[in-house]
């Protein structure tokens, strides 16, 4: 099908964009890579009055290290993130996860900011920034705000960003020595959205897991931290913490929503299996230099 009619604007600056957002509010939609928005327009699942195309705004581009944090601009394309030496070096979790995001043609156009702003419950990047304890920077005529990833994802496609705010960048702490990252997901085909998945970041020494951050995606309405599981694992050698204890904690942490890819029980089971695999891998990676 074809997109419905809309008014198209292509601002050249950040200020102009924020002005347009303030003017049109809920009637406007930001057009970034278009890899999620264009399908909904073509299928007429959404009919915004105004499309604000941000692709020409230089201030939203690039990946750089600034004040000890990695800054990924909202307009950094998935392919740029995937090939970035900075990401490979400082954010191994993102580097491992990005090849799982869609397919080459979609990664050539889709943006990091778009993925975070959309907050698809089965998407890889929201879970990664949650596991890493990153912050999301949004801007609007009422001022700029920095929101912790822990507070950013609110519900199904729902975030703490207000309709008149633009997501401008994500700030991520570089991985520290002694820490490991593991990313795993189950999907039907390569590049499909996940049926179940985990982004994990932890400090591991001598098989003992500390400060583990386990972000689960693909099963809930939003990416969620397995807080009880994380607490149980803390300071213990893996796999000494018994399966039953971890599984019981996961029963508390997770409340999967079923879809065509699996019932809630199936998804919970898959997340339990993945948890074991992820922790095994974390301990193994910490051992290998």
């Amino acid at each position: 099908m074809k997109a419905p009619r809309f008014h198209y604007v292509r601002p050249e600056s950040l200020d102009a964009t924020l002005g347009l957002l303030a003017e049109y509010g809920e009637d406007a939609r930001i057009l970034a890579g278009g890899q999620s928005l264009m399908p909904t327009l073509n299928m007429r699942l959404s009919q915004p009055k105004v499309l604000i195309d941000i692709n020409r705004i230089e201030a939203l581009k690039g990946i750089a290290v600034h004040d000890g944090m990695v800054r990924i601009g909202a307009l950094a394309r998935h392919v740029e993130v995937m090939n970035s030496p900075i990401v490979a070096e400082a954010l191994p979790l993102i580097a491992e996860a990005m090849p799982h995001v869609a397919h080459v043609a979609v990664r050539n156009r889709g943006t990091f900011g778009g993925s975070i702003a959309l907050a698809d419950p089965s998407a890889e990047m929201p879970a990664c920034i949650l596991a890493l304890g990153a912050s999301v920077v949004v801007d609007g005529v009422r001022g700029r705000r920095t929101i912790a990833a822990d507070d950013f994802f609110i519900g199904l496609y729902e975030t703490a960003r207000e309709p008149d705010e633009l997501l401008v960048e994500v700030l991520l702490p570089p991985q520290k020595p002694g820490h490991v990252s593991v990313f795993m997901e189950l999907s039907r085909r390569h590049g499909d959205f996940a049926i179940a998945g985990i982004a994990c970041h932890a400090r591991v020494a001598g098989g003992v897991i500390n400060d583990a951050r386990l972000a689960y995606f693909g099963s809930e309405a939003k990416p969620v931290l397995g807080t009880r599981t994380m607490a149980i694992l803390n300071g213990k050698a893996w796999p000494t913490a018994s399966n039953e204890v971890v599984n019981a904690a996961l029963d508390e942490d997770l409340d999967p929503i079923g879809n065509t890819f699996g019932s809630p029980a199936t998804k919970l089971h898959l997340q339990k299996v993945l948890t074991r695999r992820v922790l095994d891998a974390a301990v193994q990676r910490a051992r290998a230099p």
């Binding site: 264009m38 399908p39 073509n42 397919h103 050539n108």
Partner: peptide, 23 residues
């Protein structure tokens, strides 16, 4: 026309993209 099949692939500024997902 919603990004799934790849039949519309074209090269834009040196990179393959979905022609149906770009205006």
């Amino acid at each position: 026309e919603h990004g799934i099949c790849g039949a519309c692939s074209v090269r834009v500024d040196g990179a393959v993209v979905r022609g149906c997902l770009m205006l």
